[in-house]
Every structure is written in C-alpha cells, then in structure tokens.
Amino acid sequence: MLGVRLDKQLESRLTALAAKTQRSKSVLAKEALTRYIEEEEAKQRENQLAESRWEEYQTSGDTVDNQTMVTWMESWGTEQEKPCPVK
C-alpha cells in the first residue's frame, strides 16, 4: 500500500479527470505510475546500452567510417536500400 500526497491543483485535476472518464482516482493514479515507471525503466536500459557500447568502443576502437554510413543513409527509402553497416 502506498499513500501519495498531492497538491491541491493536481488533486483537482485528478478528480476532474476521474469524473470525466468515470474511473476512480486510484485506477488513474496506478495507470499513470505504471506508464511513468515503464518509461523510466526504458530510459535506464537505453543508458546502460549506451554505456556498454561506449566501454566497448574505448576498449576496441572499432568504428564504421563516415563514408560507409553516409552511403548507407543515402540508400534509405530507395529500391536498393543497403543493410546497416557493421564494424
């Protein structure tokens, strides 16, 4: 069980939305928290992936050269779209 104190303005907005949607304030709050937590967890996963990739680059120094990337990007949306380059 979790108790959350809301300021008056947020409480009013939540009450109004609950009335308009004919859903309880608890259901709306739970839904909002679920969405927020899912978004934050996704951000954390992306940050961890970026850190892992950065660490890998610092160790290996492997890159894809600029011209290869430009050629790939220029193929986007064409009949001859190229696969993503790999190092």
Rank of each mutant, 00 (worst) to 15 (best):
E39I: 10
R35K: 12
W72K: 03
K43G: 10
R53N: 11
R23N: 12
T34G: 00
V86R: 01
S52L: 05
M1H: 12
S26M: 11
E11N: 10
I37N: 06
L14F: 08
L28Q: 04
V64Y: 07
V27N: 04
G61M: 02
T34I: 06
E51F: 06
C84A: 06
E74M: 13
L6H: 04
Q9C: 10
G77P: 10
L10N: 06
A32D: 08
M69V: 02
R13C: 01
S12I: 09
K20L: 06
W54R: 13
V86N: 02
A29C: 15
Q67T: 12
Y36G: 02
S75K: 07
K87Y: 05
P83R: 01
L49T: 07
R53Q: 06
T21K: 14
R5C: 10
K87M: 02
R53P: 03
G61R: 02
T15Q: 08
L49I: 04
E39G: 10
Y57A: 05
R35Q: 13
I37G: 04
E51L: 09
A18V: 02
A32Y: 11
E41C: 08
Q22L: 06
S24R: 00
A32H: 08
P83H: 07
K82A: 14
E74K: 14
Q48W: 02
D62E: 10
Q58W: 01
L33S: 01
A18T: 03
E74V: 10
A42L: 15
T59P: 00
D65F: 10
D65V: 02
T68S: 06
S52G: 08
K82T: 14
K30F: 11
E31W: 05
E31L: 14
K82H: 14
A29E: 09
K82C: 07
E46P: 00
V70F: 04
W76I: 15
M69R: 05
E11S: 13
E40A: 05
T21Y: 07
W72H: 07
T71L: 05
